[in-house]
Design a protein around this nucleic acid. Structure first.
Length: 480
RNA sequence: CGGGACGUGGCGCAGUCUGGUAGCGCACAGCGUUCGGGACGCUGGGGCCGUGGGUUCGAAUCCCACCGUCCCGACCA
């Protein structure tokens, strides 16, 4: 058996057509399916389970950092959206409008929320009177709608699920700190749980959130060497508090506008998991967010339902009791080989085979999804080994992602190099920028690459495009 | 929203050029033999050919419009 014959045959190879590969995996692994409305999808149970793990974990982190969950309405009056001009201009092309209630035309159109700054600003103005009311630290888990023209499952759909935090603070500095704090919560979460290596920093003026003073974000490199924004944290300054009149009496009995932040991550992260870790055999989930961590495949020989299955069930119970997310594939219409391929496609990190030979020797066979290494371990060591292997998979997946990112980050000084890289190698280009939006725009026109982040480090040199003095270290890439 | 390609059982496709009432592989169901890397045999079910108009005795096939998907651009989590 050669390596190729082990691959799941029915998925278009990544190298042949990345987009096709991506979409096929999502449908064949039953993460999601197209809904009959343009740009909309159904997140199927297997895909939703991934989101639930992301959500549960992040929810805990958000609460640990002092935030409380709440829920704001789906609809936002048009006049609210209009208050912050930049905000409105940023979102107006993709807002879905409700114009009728039953048969009656509404006096004022209602936007289906593309984000909730407006309605939340309005409510905060009612709730906040004094510095004693601050900070306000609220998060909501919600769906939002953005009427996108070009859509792809998980990466960009007309409706998606997310978490949006909205906070109000006494001082600019406190709000800045909150912005940074949540960015680092995202960074830790994405690296530790999703095993995806990131770069982080500030967005340029042209890429920042409509209505923010500053947008920070975390970006990852997908395996086709395009960048994907995975989380954003905005310092809103007083833009929204001024237009929604969110005032408080400060410690000197003077009226002041609050300083705000907002931050969010979306179901897009599920798409990132596919694009970062998947291979030609299908998905490959990091153990911490895998819906199923261990799949038990009983080797069905002879009267296996009587001879093998009871042992497999016992093994399942043992693992479950130790906190593994485990399933037993006892379907009789499939051969073990078929099941191996199927669960590989579904990205289950660890497969446990148990057959007559193993039962006789009190063993089980463990096979990891990430490198397909197979080992025989005794049933007494199974739990310990299982934990060990899952931890190791988690670690080595992050390392692989880190190495991939480093290998595909190219430091350049000259524009000709920049262009050459964007033509062939892709990935991140790390370089210097003078800060002029015109240079940024020209680069985009030439290479399709945009500034993904402005790094926090500073350096002296000259702008990669115009040669003028520059001190901003920036990462460019083509992006989703 | 511009340029291109494609829509035929669940999936992948042939048939369209040259109009004559739909076929293949996989999947699915039943039975039997199998089962340590996608088993095999036999039997069976399922499609008014994306939607709506038009041309014609007759349309999957020709014409028009619309919708959807994918790729390439402009816009975005």
């Amino acid at each position: 058996m050669n390596d190729k014959s082990r691959f799941v045959q029915k998925i278009t190879p990544k190298s042949t057509d990345f987009s096709k590969w991506y979409v096929e995996i999502i449908r064949k692994a039953e993460l999601a399916d197209y809904a009959p409305m343009k740009g909309m999808m159904v997140i199927r149970p297997y895909g939703y389970a991934v989101w639930e793990h992301i959500k549960n974990h992040l929810d805990k982190k958000i609460k640990e950092t002092g935030h409380k969950n709440a829920y704001f309405p789906l609809f936002i009056p048009e006049s609210f959206l209009q208050k912050e001009t930049e905000h409105l201009e940023g979102f107006s092309p993709e807002v879905a409008w409700v114009t009728h209630g039953g048969e009656d035309e509404l006096e004022e159109r209602l936007a289906v929320r593309p984000t909730s700054e407006a309605i939340i600003g309005h409510m905060y103005s009612k709730w906040i009177n004094s510095y004693r009311d601050l900070p306000v630290l609220i998060n909501q888990w919600a769906n939002i709608v953005r009427w996108e023209k070009v859509t792809r499952p998980f990466l960009r759909t007309a409706e998606f699920l997310w978490q949006e935090g909205h906070t109000a603070h006494e001082t600019s500095q406190e709000a800045e700190e909150e912005t940074q704090k949540m960015l680092s919560v995202y960074k830790e979460f994405i690296e530790n749980e999703l095993a995806i290596s990131l770069i982080s920093g500030l967005k340029s003026e042209r890429e920042k959130f409509a209505g923010a003073s500053a947008t920070y974000c975390v970006e990852a490199l997908m395996s086709d060497k395009k960048a994907l924004q995975m989380g954003t944290s905005h310092f809103l300054g007083q833009h929204f508090s001024k237009v929604f009149d969110v005032k408080f009496e400060d410690r000197n009995q003077e009226l002041q506008y609050v300083w705000q932040t907002s931050w969010g991550v979306t179901t897009r992260m599920v798409g990132a998991l596919v694009m970062v870790h998947g291979d030609d055999s299908g998905l490959c989930f990091p153990p911490r967010v895998a819906p199923v961590q261990v799949i038990i495949v009983p080797i069905s020989v002879g009267d296996w339902k009587k001879t093998v299955l009871p042992h497999a069930e016992k093994v399942k119970k043992k693992l479950e009791n130790k906190g593994f997310r485990v399933e037993l594939d006892d379907r009789e219409q499939f051969t073990p080989g078929w099941k191996f391929s199927e669960w590989e496609m579904k990205g289950v990190p660890l497969r446990l085979e148990i057959g007559p030979r193993d039962i006789e020797n009190n063993n089980v066979v463990l096979v990891r999804r990430d490198n397909r290494k197979k080992q025989v371990v005794s049933q007494d060591q199974m739990i310990e080994k299982g934990h060990e292997i899952l931890d190791d998979i988690q670690k080595s997946m992050l390392n692989a992602s880190l190495k991939f990112r480093e290998d595909n980050t190219h430091e350049v000084n000259h524009y000709s190099e920049f262009q050459a890289i964007m033509k062939s190698k892709m990935g991140f280009v790390k370089t210097l920028w003078c800060g002029n939006p015109d240079c940024e725009a020209h680069i985009k026109e030439d290479t399709k690459a945009t500034i993904r982040v402005i790094a926090s480090e500073k350096e002296k040199g000259s702008c990669v495009y115009c040669d003028k003095d520059a001190h901003l270290v920036v990462y460019f890439a083509r992006a989703y």
